[in-house]
Design a protein around this nucleic acid. Structure first.
Lengths: 208, 208
DNA sequence: GTACTTATTAATTGAGCGTTCAGTAAGTAA
DNA sequence: TTACTTACTGAACGCTCAATTAATAAGTAC
């Protein structure tokens, strides 16, 4: 192959990032090789070093790039419109929005990377923590207000988040990451609807 | 150092397995080197090959060894005594037993390994799936019975498990694996007690 | 004490991988 | 046309690391 190809691809850098993300998501950081990423991107390994100074930098760039795709889904949860809803509707919508968010294959890839590399790379965790908690903040404001008014069972907001995110996260881990047999064919709604019903029955006190 | 030391340790193999488990748990499979495991066990790398044919075999053996430590905690959940309890007490005890189970550092190490290596090693997942689901089965029997009698809100048992395990698993991931700031100082009971209260209020219908 | 087995080491090998570097075709500017 | 920049390639380097091998001290059986 010759340098400077006839039809110069307009966004080599972007192609490399996408290929890198795919390979890192599939193999993990250590097992992913620059050679394989290069192959996936249709270039030679050396070309990767034209755009990124090291494997670590490429990894960071690839993951950070994808992260911004997650923003809208979370932001929607904190929209002013949503804040006008009564607790039952608000919390149900929140739950469904999170489920949609987790239904995205790229989201699951990020989770896969985060679970595999996060425990050994705090700076990677920090990237997501900042972003996710920035958006969750608004949701918590809503909650605190309704807890004070007695419309929602009062509790530590951290506990609330675990309560809400936990079952969904567990489903993604069991079904999509570990591929546990019994969960293979459990569709999202089959979890979300009973979950919403049961959580809300316990979380939102009966109308007085 | 001389071969065949003066005071021959009685259980070299066990020491190696323990050292290997620690290193694998901390570094992950790829990043853990035979040299480091050997150092942790107080032998040379070649000694590892006296007991285990390859790195992969050592890894499998180390993880499998630990797995059996988890059995008692899960078995207790399915004891005949527990099955006599009314749903509220049974489910509360189940939740607390799971929390205790997850409080064990070795359990968390297994989870860390499972999340990091599981997505790329189905046979590793299979080891745990078999064991965990063997014991969960008995719990599900209890549940089905009480669901049929209307004492527990009827639902897919898989959903029930996600519902029960999810928040605890999420706490372990956020607090212990990813070390998210806000969760750093959230003690187990601070999650378990409100969780039990809220889940049970929603899961177990009001007394008629 | 001799023969054999067990448990271990030191040294080495060989593959794989991140990274570097010199070279070069294609595009751009004067 | 010349000078320069951009965007790569092919080849090689150096290192790490899993795995092998030959040697050997300590224990055991006879």
């Amino acid at each position: 192959m010759s340098p400077r190809p006839k039809n110069p691809p307009p966004d080599r850098r972007g192609e490399i990032l996408e290929a890198a993300f795919r390979v890192f998501a599939e193999k993990g950081y250590r097992a992913a090789t620059m050679a394989e990423i290069a192959r996936a991107a249709g270039v030679t390994p050396a070309a990767l070093y034209y755009y990124f100074p090291s494997k670590a930098d490429l990894f960071r760039a690839a993951v950070t790039e994808r992260r911004s795709q997650l923003q809208p889904a979370l932001a929607a949860l904190a929209s002013p419109d949503a804040r006008e809803l009564p607790p039952r509707e608000f919390l149900g919508a929140l739950l469904r929005a999170m489920a949609d968010f987790l239904a995205d294959e790229r989201t699951r890839a990020v989770i896969r990377i985060l679970l595999a590399e996060g425990p050994r790379d705090p700076s990677l965790v920090a990237i997501f923590q900042e972003e996710v908690y920035g958006n969750i903040g608004a949701v918590l404001g809503y909650l605190e207000q309704h807890m004070a008014q007695g419309n929602v069972r009062p509790m530590d907001p951290r506990v609330f988040l675990l309560f809400f995110q936990g079952p969904l996260l567990a489903m993604v881990i069991f079904r999509d990451l570990l591929r546990l047999g019994p969960y293979r064919d459990l569709p999202n709604p089959a979890l979300v609807e009973p979950l919403a019903e049961t959580i809300l029955a316990g979380l939102v006190p009966e109308k007085r």
